Amino acid sequence: MPARPPRLKQRRDFQRVAGKGARAARPGLVLQALPVPGHPLRVGFTATKKIGNAVVRNRTKRRLREAARLLLGDGRVQGFDLVLIGREATAERPFGTLMGDLRGALKQAGVPLSERVSETAS
């Protein structure tokens, strides 16, 4: 089971990624990515009041955290600070489609996602 990637928590880190990082938008999320060579991967999550009440915002962030854990929790991606921003569609979007949105946004932002090695090959 993949571990949770370390988190961005301080406002100045979010602002630094927003100001200097690459941006990729998808229907289910917006990704901001900033290369930080020599540092571990860190991920931050945000959802604005524009997308709904606290229940909807919390659901949105939970879904983004799980998608990030599944795609980035294996520790293969290093040297990036990422911010995932929820959109109105995030809370209700099918989870497989949301994962596809995240994969595409990571690719567009230049974050190298190594494909998992096939377990059937021996």
Results as ranks from 00 to 15, higher is better:
P2R: 12
A3D: 13
A3H: 11
P5C: 02
P6E: 07
R7G: 05
L8S: 03
L8H: 03
L8P: 10
Q10V: 14
Q10I: 10
R11Y: 10
R11I: 06
R12L: 11
R12K: 15
Q15V: 14
R16D: 02
R16G: 00
V17M: 09
A18V: 01
A18W: 09
G19T: 01
K20C: 13
G21Y: 06
A22M: 10
R23P: 07
R23Q: 04
R23I: 03
A25L: 12
A25F: 12
R26L: 01
R26S: 06
R26W: 06
P27W: 02
P27I: 01
G28H: 10
L29N: 12
V30F: 08
L31P: 05
Q32Y: 15
Q32F: 15
A33Y: 14
A33V: 08
L34S: 03
L34P: 08
P37F: 09
G38S: 05
H39M: 15
H39R: 14
P40S: 14
P40Y: 11
L41S: 04
L41H: 11
L41M: 09
R42N: 10
R42K: 15
V43D: 00
V43C: 07
F45G: 08
F45E: 06
T46Y: 03
T46E: 12
K50E: 01
K50T: 12
I51G: 00
I51K: 05
G52R: 04
N53V: 00
N53H: 13
N53K: 07
V55E: 08
V55F: 07
V55N: 04
R59W: 09
R59G: 08
R59N: 09
T60P: 05
R62T: 02
R63S: 11
R63G: 06
R63Q: 12
L64E: 04
L64A: 05
R65F: 05
R65G: 02
E66R: 04
E66F: 07
A67R: 00
A67F: 01
L70F: 06
L72R: 05
L72D: 02
L72T: 05
L72N: 09
L72M: 10
L72V: 02
L72F: 10
G73H: 07
G73R: 06
D74M: 01
R76Q: 12
V77S: 01
G79K: 08
G79E: 07
F80K: 04
D81V: 04
L82D: 07
V83K: 03
L84I: 11
I85M: 15
G86Y: 03
R87G: 08
E88K: 15
T90V: 09
T90W: 01
T90L: 04
A91C: 09
E92K: 06
R93M: 15
R93L: 14
F95S: 06
F95E: 10
T97Q: 11
T97I: 10
M99W: 00
M99E: 14
M99H: 04
L102R: 06
L102V: 03
L102N: 10
L102A: 12
R103F: 02
G104I: 01
G104P: 00
A105H: 07
L106T: 02
L106I: 04
L106K: 02
K107A: 13
K107V: 13
A109R: 08
G110E: 00
V111T: 05
P112E: 04
P112Q: 05
L113R: 13
S114C: 01
E115N: 11
E115F: 12
V117F: 12
V117R: 13
V117P: 04
S118N: 15
E119F: 10
E119A: 13
T120K: 13
A121G: 08
